[in-house]
Simulated scan of single mutants.
Amino acid sequence: MDETESLNRAIHEEVALFPYDPAWPTLFEKERDRLLDLFPDQFLALEHIGSTAVPGLSAKPIIDILAGVDSISRADELLEPLCRAQYATSMEYNASLVGRRWLMRWAEGRRTHHLHLMVHGSEEWHRRLAFRNSLRVDTELAQRYEKKKRLWVAEFASDREAYTAAKGDFIKEALKNAS
């Protein structure tokens, strides 16, 4: 699948939530180990983030991996080798991102993983981990987030960008209230 086709399929894929699957952490571990084998000494850390990293939370069944690198230029250097290692991305989309790079992995006709490359220890790195950790320890916050996600799916099922934007507003508010 070429870059344009894979990105178009991702953009136009309908948003759907699935019940928590206890296999998600294992799927993360397998992909983390595969990346570490393929790219020894390239990642400072690989973290499972997103809703699949929160036990009990419904999610899109795509494993989000936060990959810490020492610089954005290192992330840029890794894009092509990662694409040779079964990931796909859009160089145009990545050029629009500040402080991170994004790739996706496909298997059996659907996206299975998102890989978020960012500078290890950056503000955005800490923000993403803080939200994941808040959801893991605050059951009430996780329940509110899931309820909101269900409403957003109903409203934005065919508009992935609007769904993502709605989640972003919730995350900002949750992190503001946590600090």
Rank of each mutant, 00 (worst) to 15 (best):
L141Q: 09
H12S: 11
S58G: 11
E173K: 00
D76Y: 10
W102F: 15
E47Y: 06
S58R: 08
Y93Q: 08
V15A: 06
V119R: 14
Y163K: 01
D21R: 07
V153F: 08
G68F: 07
L35S: 08
A85F: 09
S122Y: 07
F170L: 00
E155G: 08
D76F: 10
E47N: 10
P40I: 10
H113E: 03
G56L: 10
E123W: 03
A45I: 04
A85D: 10
W102P: 01
P25N: 07
Y93M: 11
S158I: 08
E92C: 04
L17C: 11
T139W: 03
L27S: 09
L135G: 00
Y145R: 00
E31V: 12
L36K: 13
T89R: 05
E80D: 13
S6Q: 14
I171Q: 00
N177W: 06
E155H: 10
G56C: 09
Q42I: 01
D33K: 14
A130Y: 03
A166K: 07
A165T: 12
S96M: 11
D64R: 02
S73E: 15
R34S: 14
Y93S: 02
E14H: 14
W106V: 07
L78Q: 07
W152P: 04
G50I: 01
R74W: 02
E123D: 10
I72W: 04
Y20L: 06
L17H: 11
Y145K: 00
A157V: 05
I11E: 13
L175R: 01
S179D: 12
D21S: 11
R74C: 09
F18V: 14
I65E: 02
A59S: 14
I63K: 02
R128N: 03
F43M: 04
R160K: 14
I63M: 02
K149F: 05
K60A: 10
A174H: 00
P22F: 07
R101S: 07
A16R: 15
W125L: 02
P19K: 10
R111F: 06
K176D: 10
L115Q: 06
L135N: 00
F18H: 15
L115R: 08
K30R: 15
R100G: 01
P55Q: 09
I171V: 15
Q143K: 13
W102Q: 06
R9E: 11
R100C: 04
Q42M: 08
V69R: 06
G56N: 08
R128M: 01
R144K: 14
R111N: 04
W24G: 06
R110T: 14
R127C: 00
I171L: 00
L46C: 07
E80K: 13
R111S: 04
A95N: 12
K176I: 14
R84A: 15
L82A: 12
S73Y: 11
D64F: 03
E92I: 14
E3R: 13
C83W: 06
D64V: 03
K60C: 08
L117H: 10
Y145Q: 01
S51R: 03
V69Y: 06
E13W: 12
E155Q: 15
L17V: 12
E124P: 01
G121T: 09
A130Q: 06
Y145M: 01
Y20A: 13
L7K: 13
P55Y: 11
H120A: 12
H126G: 03
R74E: 12
Q42V: 05
I63L: 03
T4L: 15
P22K: 11
P61V: 09
G109C: 05
T26A: 15
K149C: 05
D70F: 06
Q86L: 10
T112F: 08
H48R: 11
W125D: 02
F18L: 13
K172Y: 00
